[in-house]
Nucleic acid binder design. Structure first.
Length: 474
DNA sequence: TGAAATGTTGGGGCG
DNA sequence: ACGCCCCAACATTTC
């Protein structure tokens, strides 16, 4: 007879610390740890190129932590489970819950199929501080505004559970018929990923180190600093969180435990509040499964979006002629990440100044971001468009030049990604096209050659967007 | 987690 | 000395 095993199905929990389902599996008996790269059920939400690269390295790290005992598969997860239970004596399946609509549908189906064969499923919360269905208004409808959602909904609910301890007694089985990580073919054939990954350390240890670094070096200047893309005040934990290399519970409690003698309460609460935004995105997606596709405010269905491939491409490549926008888009391209403040600005620019459908931005971010996350990405783009649940009012249009002067006053961030502007006096870096001819000449810059002319006029495109909006709402 | 337009105020130059 | 104008600087409103 084949070996008796308890399967732990790793999904968005690529870690051994604070992993309740994995802990349960290892307490039940011999564990068959598996990962399935399921691009079948994911459909159009299959991982983007950058996410696959991250996944490759994260799985490599996880597999090492498991002494090489991780079994990998590619394809439809239900079919793979059918096949596994035919070859192993599967006594139970453990997983931490996922919350994306396609995953919920798939997992529900698998749970039913396993139930029919009397194989119990043990599911846990490993990814969210509060279950989406638990945080609702007193009339049990979902919150529509962040502040009450967080202050009343989350903070007055039970506090997030404490992290569970890591097991040291697990023993494993491996499926010899499984694929190697390389056989999942997650890395691109043209190896554009090699420089990108140097900015990060994928995997559980990298995540733990990132948290430590942030608690010591970033948290004490978080409020104020978190909006300055040139500073190191943000945690940069988002990709680690997305893949579950670290749990939000550990982050939450680690931040709360920082002595207020060392770091003011203001910073700790401000940081935890940002974890709350992540929770809010998942809450919105849970109650609005169509969030990734459909405007929550139908008024935006009638918006006359522009279509201009050249402008989209200029935006994607960071060649718009507006330095803060271009620096942000190049940060994304080069590092698989973009500072949050800059995400809002480039988003506003695409949707309001260029008047492109937010879907273009959502798709590009999905493909390029290491932290591409269906809930955060969809909620973020709907927010910036104004079409979302707790949306920025449409008329709140960021002026990228003012944002640049305000949040990157010394142009540290811009120059990191646009070194061609180095010789310009700082006051002209935010809008080179407004600099006098002799200033440009002295800096060795010819607009249109060394750096592009702006692809839109900020003032007129702003006015046009407002006109369209008022025509829609009337 | 905006920006621009419009309104108000008050100091100083000046006849 | 006084009133008037100008215009920063700040506040409020509007989109």
């Amino acid at each position: 007879m084949s070996a008796s095993v308890y399967i732990h199905w790793f999904r968005q929990d690529l870690r051994l610390n604070d992993n309740p389902a994995f802990l349960q599996a290892s307490e039940l008996g011999c564990v068959l740890p598996i990962y399935i790269f399921d691009d079948i059920n994911a459909g159009e939400y299959a991982m983007g190129s950058a996410s696959r690269v991250w996944l490759h390295h994260s799985l490599t790290s996880l597999s090492e932590s498991l002494g090489g005992m991780l079994s990998c598969y590619r394809g439809d997860a239900s079919a793979i489970f059918e096949e596994l239970i035919s070859r192993f004596d599967v006594r139970g399946v453990c997983w931490n819950r996922c919350y994306e609509p396609w995953r919920i549908a798939r997992d529900t189906g698998i749970k039913k199929m396993l139930g029919e064969k009397d194989i119990p499923v043990y599911s846990y919360n490993g990814s969210l501080l509060w279950e989406p269905w638990d945080i609702v208004k007193s009339d049990s409808s979902p919150y529509r505004v962040f502040t009450p959602y967080y202050n009343k909904g989350c903070l007055q609910y039970e506090p997030p559970r404490m992290p569970v301890t890591k097991t040291d007694k697990a023993h494993f089985e491996k499926d010899n018929a499984s694929k190697t990580i390389d056989e999942l073919s997650l890395l691109p054939t043209i190896r554009w990923d090699k420089k990108m990954v140097l900015h990060w350390k994928m995997g559980e240890l990298g995540a733990q180190n990132r948290l430590k670094t942030f608690l010591h070096e970033g948290l004490n200047s978080y409020i104020g600093g978190r909006d300055m893309p040139g500073k190191c005040s943000v945690s940069r934990l988002s990709p680690h969180l997305h893949f579950g290399e670290i749990s939000p519970h550990q982050i939450w409690h680690a931040a709360q435990a920082v002595s207020t003698g060392t770091v003011e309460k203001l910073h700790i609460e401000g940081f935890c509040r940002e974890l709350g935004w992540r929770e809010f995105s998942y809450n919105q997606l849970y109650f609005n499964p169509e969030l990734p596709k459909k405007n929550i405010r139908p008024m935006f269905d009638d918006f006359p979006w522009e279509s201009n491939d050249a402008q989209i491409e200029a935006w994607q490549r960071g060649e718009t002629g507006i330095p803060l926008i271009d620096a942000g888009m190049r940060e994304l391209w080069q590092t698989g990440y973009m500072h949050n403040r800059v995400r809002m600005v480039v988003g506003s620019f695409l949707v309001k100044n260029l008047r492109m459908h937010w879907h273009h931005g959502e798709r590009w971010f999905w493909d390029c971001l290491f932290d591409a996350d269906l809930a955060n990405n969809s909620a973020g783009w709907q927010w910036v468009t104004g079409s979302g649940i707790d949306a920025a009012p449409y008329f709140r249009i960021f002026n990228p030049v003012l944002q640049s002067k305000k949040f990157d006053p010394n142009a540290d961030y811009i120059l990191k990604y646009l070194p061609v502007l180095t010789r310009l006096p700082v006051e002209h870096i935010h809008a080179p096209y407004e600099a006098p001819q002799d200033v440009l000449r002295n800096a060795g810059i010819v607009l249109g050659e060394d750096y592009p002319h702006p692809i839109v006029d900020l003032a007129t495109s702003r006015k046009r967007a407002l006109e369209i909006y008022s025509s829609l709402s009337s």
